[in-house]
């Protein structure tokens, strides 16, 4: 059993939880993720470790309400327990002093980007971060990102905060202005696809962190497989980070929808079950 120690909402449907998991807090590195299962009937879902506190023995995860499990998780409170948490999984981000690193995050993808921004900065890089969201209320981790970035650019679709436009617009401005040695892009698959196309134009080595469907997270099932440079890779053991210019994002987008019908009907049934029964 893993206890929830802190909880806050970063935006209406995005919660940050700190969970007691001392071993994972100690051994996790930037880029690692966990798999959790809320209760006996729950599914196993992967979540990136956004941060950790080794003294308190806690890890932080950021979760967006999108389906049954994430909804349940967002509704849990301090003191509640999660039945299973396992990790840290995946291969850690390769952190080195390369010069200038452009970190771009979209939506809730800003959460897994944060530990990388932090590690890149601590490794001595000049870090320029671009975070994007549909609107002002959905921008998360602004202060945290600012603390570890030499420059923070915020992009919103409606211009309600920062500049108006997509993440790629902000990225391109930086690339045209100065030499970027490496880029890291994390967010919805469609955003990573276009962010990767942007950096490819300028031949900037780019890493993307993939959030595919997983069951065990240890290489056992292959649900997370993606094509990278024409070769099938398992995101859970060889990833989650890959050369963004080699990832087949169209295939990944399609595979993310593998259970869409079942998941959305399951979610609507769950939401119905939450409504008070009249009479």
């Amino acid at each position: 059993m893993f206890k929830i120690i802190e909880k806050e909402f970063l935006s209406e449907n995005v919660a940050r939880l700190s969970i007691e998991a001392p071993y994972i807090a100690k051994s996790r590195k930037a880029g690692n993720f966990i798999i959790l299962r809320i209760d006996e009937k729950g599914e196993r879902i992967p979540l990136t470790i956004a941060d950790a506190n080794t003294e308190k023995g806690t890890i932080y995860v950021i979760v967006q309400r999108v389906g049954v499990s994430s909804h349940k998780l967002c509704d849990m409170n301090v003191g509640d327990t999660i039945l299973d948490v396992v990790g840290p999984l995946g291969t850690a981000t390769h952190i080195a002093n390369v010069g200038t690193v452009l970190c771009a995050g979209g939506g809730v993808g800003v959460a897994p980007l944060f530990p990388i921004v932090q590690a890149m900065k601590l490794a001595g890089n000049r870090v320029i971060t671009v975070i994007a969201a549909r609107t002002k209320e959905l921008v998360i981790l602004e202060n945290e990102m600012r603390e570890y970035s030499d420059e923070l650019i915020i992009m919103t679709d409606d211009g309600s905060l920062g500049e108006k436009g997509l993440v790629t617009l902000g990225m391109e401005k930086v690339i045209q202005r100065e030499k970027v040695n490496e880029a890291v892009v994390i967010g919805p698959a469609i955003m990573m696809k276009f962010a990767a196309l942007t950096t490819k134009k300028y031949d900037i080595p780019t890493v993307a962190s993939l959030n595919t469907i997983m069951v065990d997270g240890t290489g056992m099932c292959g649900a997370c497989r993606v094509s990278v440079g024409g070769k099938t890779e398992f995101v859970c053991v060889s990833g989650p980070e890959f050369d963004a210019h080699q990832v087949n994002f169209d295939e990944m987008l399609s595979r993310l929808n593998a259970y869409k019908t079942k998941e959305s009907s399951g979610y609507s049934d769950y939401l119905k079950s939450l409504k008070p029964v009249l009479n």
Partner: peptide, 11 residues
């Protein structure tokens, strides 16, 4: 082989 609906026996 990576189309949806194709899975390993393990999965």
């Amino acid at each position: 082989e990576n189309f949806n609906g194709i899975q390993s026996a393990n999965e």
